[in-house]
């Protein structure tokens, strides 16, 4: 890894952390408790298309750990890890399959993110009734994933021209 690339990855991580912070300041609600846009995922989706997979995983892990320690708590980290890592795995796989556009990949990521968190929530409170939020969370993942994907698509076309070392 070149110095330039290391700096680039660090910058993306910092940007993702800041997005997480901005979102904590100005929550954009969707009428479902706990659902948010996930601005930081713009960074992750773009990184997925310009960096090797393992570097994106490191950025995602660093982002979750930093945001949880700085602005959240330990239980939040568990949910973020489950959602963040599942969605990144799904997105990596779908990107490799090359059947969906950036927006499609992001939608799948948004939905799987929410499903990952729901599964952890069911395990934590030991109550299957929570799974009743499945349809609402799926639709929320679809909408947020779509918005993030469309933004990432636009930004990606500009960023691709930059030499990242």
């Amino acid at each position: 890894m070149t110095t330039k690339r290391a700096a680039y990855c660090a910058m993306l991580t910092a940007l993702a952390v800041i997005f997480g912070y901005v979102e904590a300041l100005i929550p954009i609600g969707f009428g479902i408790p706990g659902v948010k846009l996930g601005l930081a995922n713009i960074v992750i989706v773009i990184a997925l298309y310009i960096l090797p997979n393992y570097q994106v995983f490191v950025i995602q892990l660093m982002r979750i750990v930093l945001v949880s320690f700085l602005f959240g708590n330990m239980s939040m980290m568990l949910y973020s890890l489950a959602g963040g890592m599942l969605s990144l795995l799904v997105m990596c796989y779908l990107k490799r399959m090359d059947i969906f556009s950036v927006t499609g990949v992001s939608i799948a990521g948004g939905v799987s993110h929410n499903i990952g968190q729901l599964v952890v929530a069911v395990l934590v409170v030991q109550n299957l009734k929570i799974a009743f939020y499945f349809p609402a969370l799926m639709m929320a993942g679809l909408v947020t994933g779509c918005v993030i994907g469309m933004l990432a698509c636009r930004i990606k076309s500009v960023i691709e021209k930059i030499d990242i070392g």
């Binding site: 059947i99 927006t103 499609g104 939608i107 799926m138 639709m139 679809l142 779509c146």
Partner: peptide, 14 residues
Amino acid sequence: MFRKKDFLLITAII
């Protein structure tokens, strides 16, 4: 921004 298969995914989710 979208591919045809994307709409298949969106429909399936809905």
